[in-house]
Simulated scan of single mutants.
Amino acid sequence: MENNIYKYRVLLKMSQEELAKKCHVSRQTINAIENNKYNPSLKLAFNLSDVLNTSVDDLFIRENVNRSD
């Protein structure tokens, strides 16, 4: 799953380490999420959105979603 975490983190002038501390995870976890190597739990996704002052929908880009209208 792709994401916009890097974009929002940079807008807030926050380092990976600062974001990690605020979300109670390691810097390596933030790095892996930003590089699309790890999908966060739902709880962590909401924590990230809270810390980055945005919605989960704005942070994460769903791929191949088939919706019936």
Rank of each mutant, 00 (worst) to 15 (best):
N3L: 01
N53E: 15
S49K: 08
R62Q: 14
T29D: 07
Y8E: 01
V10N: 07
T29P: 03
L19S: 00
H24Q: 13
N31Q: 12
L44V: 11
Y38Q: 13
Q28A: 12
N31C: 11
S26R: 07
E2A: 06
K7I: 06
L44G: 05
R27N: 04
T54P: 01
E34N: 08
R67P: 08
K43C: 12
E2C: 04
K7H: 09
L11C: 05
R9I: 02
K43R: 14
N31G: 13
I5F: 03
Q16M: 10
L52Y: 02
I30D: 02
L12T: 02
V51C: 03
I5W: 00
K43M: 13
N53V: 14
A20I: 06
E34S: 05
L11P: 02
K7W: 06
A45S: 07
S49V: 09
D58S: 13
I5M: 03
K37W: 11
M14D: 02
D50P: 08
L19C: 03
I33K: 03
L48W: 03
V51S: 01
K37H: 15
C23Y: 02
N3R: 01
F60E: 01
N3G: 02
K37Y: 14
R67C: 12
N66H: 15
R27E: 04
D69L: 14
N3P: 02
V56G: 03
T54Q: 08
R67G: 13
R9V: 02
S55Q: 12
N36R: 13
N64F: 07
L59S: 01
L19T: 00
D57G: 14
Y38P: 03
E17H: 09
S55W: 10
A45I: 01
N66K: 15
V10K: 07
N31Y: 12
V25A: 05
